[in-house]
Design a protein around this nucleic acid. Structure first.
Lengths: 184, 184
DNA sequence: CAAGATACGCTACTTCGAGTAGCGTAATCG
DNA sequence: CGATTACGCTACTCGAAGTAGCGTATCTTG
């Protein structure tokens, strides 16, 4: 339990998180989710494929970590519930619009449907934290927040999946307005 | 161009559409989208895998055809715009809730993200017809209908993908209410 | 400066599913 | 019957995820 003093003997792990995440997003945005194979990501990161697998147990886990890094904590802004929700939605939409992020998100989401283990990772590590944050900020029951997340994320990802392009601002605005009328 | 008289010489094609579709949905609902390999579907249909590939150029194409068959034409009910939209949403939600349909839908949708050709098939053969029907019935511009489809389908699929279960009626009701307030 | 421990790079592998090729056989029309 | 077309089957190719094991590099500790 020396978590605070990780200076164990032996060669230290090289600090490749930032490099790997950047390489992942770059590969995904250039080659698409399918084209971004672990081999290519490894090459893009200047690292051996086996090294990637020493850190992440699967491609899905790598992508989820990459997304966690890309999204970071929600920055809720505003004072009343409406402002908070609007800021959250705009924030997600903007993040999903960043190069590689939307495609990577849609990609893992797809894989997760086929892979229960990945679905658990996705749900617990990516969705849960935001659900909790929103639940505290908005004071709504959890099933309501989950529906809200389904609506916002589902809509944005569906657009991304169908067209390959992120949703334009005008449509995001309509989405915000619609959600506010029901959940605000 | 004897399309109306397909009685050319030779062994006639066996009528396997219904069998194949049933086998596909059954395989997907029992084994999940990933587990429903072409081999297994072929076995479930009592047919050789190569025969499946003689009809459908890819697994994605088979699934899309299967979904087209499962969904069938929209049955819009009601007289005013609100009733029409509500009936359409309940219809989609119910269809997606049928065994195998939701998982199959979410599955192709995933694959389509990785596969531009499949995305085209999905968009043109599955989304377009319903878009046109809705556009005529509701008299809205196409970008608005597309957003509507993103919202409804995206939400339902996101729930399906995250939980593996179709959305419960209460949540569908909230979805309907919300959409009606904006698009009704 | 060793000695031990740990991580990395590399090559080669396994596994599994999509999709293909080609042969022998079954069904149908004339 | 003969031509034609489709089916079943076996055996492939191909590509990507993930693994094994060896030699080497880089640390910490004595």
């Amino acid at each position: 339990m020396q978590s605070s003093t990780p200076s164990a003997a032996g060669r230290p792990r090289s600090d490749l998180h930032a490099t790997a995440f950047a390489a992942t997003l770059r590969s995904v945005s250039e080659l698409g989710y399918a084209g971004a194979t672990m081999d290519r990501i490894a090459v893009a990161a200047g690292v051996a494929k086996t090294t990637l697998y020493r850190r992440w147990p699967s491609k899905g886990a790598l992508i989820v970590d990459c997304l966690l890094d890309a999204f970071g904590p929600v920055r809720l802004q505003g004072t009343d519930r409406g402002e908070i929700m609007a800021s959250a939605i705009h924030w997600v939409a903007a993040k999903i619009g960043e190069p590689g992020v939307g495609a990577a998100f849609a990609g893992v989401f797809s894989d997760a449907i086929n892979d229960p283990a990945l679905r658990t990772i996705l749900s617990e590590r990516l969705q849960e934290p935001y659900r909790l944050t929103l639940q505290e900020a908005l004071g709504e029951p959890d099933d309501r927040i989950l529906l809200l997340i389904d609506i916002v994320t589902g809509t944005l990802l569906h657009r991304m999946g169908m067209t390959g392009e992120p949703m334009v601002d005008a449509d995001v605005a309509v989405l915000v307005e619609m959600v506010l009328r029901t959940f605000g």
